[in-house]
């Protein structure tokens, strides 16, 4: 918005001050995330920029902390990097194990949350849904209830039912936490959904299932995918429930980070953090592309 011609000098000054404040707040938001990226390439075990790093001396940078992610916990980390070394890393390195666990748990939790959540969102979006408000409130509540309370409740429940320490238990818990995100995103796409399309399909003789898979689903797919991404990120970033109900050997990336931060914080944490930042940049890009696709399909182009 340009400064209008009628603005007084004070207003002009105020406008510049306003821009400065905005820039500072945006810097506050983004700086911590950007700053850990160069720090993770530090050649020294410090959390600050060394003199050699500031001088852009290649000697000051290294990949040692990324290497540590692969070797930490290995039986023979010093050996030559042949097939046996890589197999050793794949089977024994702590961070690799944690990444595998996180991926497995995240995948199945997302699957459960997205399937059940999409079905429910379809029901909630129907005009004749009974008790919509109450049921929506119940289904969204896992997002609102503090995580420590959920973890406490699950701890009691799982120790009674014998689910604690099992993958199934963690997957169920993470699916529960991801469901609100799926419901919110899919319901948001469904509010702009033209119901006459499904009626047209039905009048042309399609069964309800065929109507769903050929008409409804392609149109709400962006919402489903972004809900699934949210659910996956929720599971991939969840540590409190895992701390309460997982077995000691069930490490996940957030749990490993949690331990690392609590015990002795090493720049390896910054290396894994950088990798996760890159992952979130990819996710954000995917979300943006999905949003644009959704707008195009509904004929809403950005102005």
């Amino acid at each position: 918005m340009p400064i209008p011609a009628y603005a007084t000098p004070l207003e002009r000054l105020w406008r510049h001050a306003f821009r400065l404040v905005c820039a500072l707040v945006l810097l506050f938001l983004i700086a911590p995330i950007i700053i850990i990226i160069p720090l993770s390439f530090n050649a020294e075990p410090y959390f600050t920029f060394t003199a050699r790093m500031l001088a852009l001396d290649p000697e000051g940078f290294s990949l040692r902390w990324y290497d540590k992610l692969l070797t930490f916990g290995m039986q023979a980390p010093e050996g030559p990097r042949d097939l046996a070394w890589w197999l050793d890393s794949w089977h024994n390195a702590r961070w690799v194990q944690a990444a595998k666990n996180s991926a497995i748990i995240g995948f199945f939790a997302t699957l459960v949350a997205t399937t059940l959540g999409t079905l429910a969102a379809l029901g909630l979006a129907r005009p004749d849904m009974p008790w919509r408000r109450t049921i929506t409130a119940i289904l969204i509540s896992p997002m609102i209830v503090p995580i420590i309370i959920t973890a406490t409740g699950l701890f009691f429940f799982y120790s009674m039912t014998g689910l604690s320490g099992s993958y199934a238990g963690i997957i169920l818990a993470h699916a529960t936490l991801g469901i609100p995100f799926v419901i919110i995103t899919v319901t948001a796409t469904l509010t702009g959904f033209d119901r006459s399309l499904t009626r047209a399909a039905a009048s042309l003789g399609a069964t309800p299932a065929r109507t769903f898979f050929r008409i409804t689903m392609p149109l709400i797919l962006p919402g489903i995918i972004s809900g699934a991404l949210f659910a996956f990120v929720t599971s991939f970033d969840e540590v409190v429930v895992v701390l309460f109900i997982a077995a000691p050997d069930q490490q996940t990336i957030p749990r490993q980070m949690w331990n690392g931060i609590r015990e002795q914080i090493s720049p390896s944490i910054l290396a894994i953090a950088t990798i996760l930042v890159v992952v979130s940049i990819l996710l954000l890009t995917t979300m943006e592309l999905l949003r644009r696709r959704s707008e195009r399909m509904r004929g809403l182009a950005p102005q």
């Binding site: 983004i30 911590p32 995330i33 540590v239 957030p254 953090a273 996760l276 930042v277």
Partner: peptide
């Protein structure tokens, strides 16, 4: 981007800073 970034990553970043 901060909204999408892991909570633990952001906490780690603040510790480093």
């Amino acid at each position: 981007l901060p909204f999408w970034t892991s909570l633990l990553v952001r906490t780690t970043a603040w510790i480093a800073i």
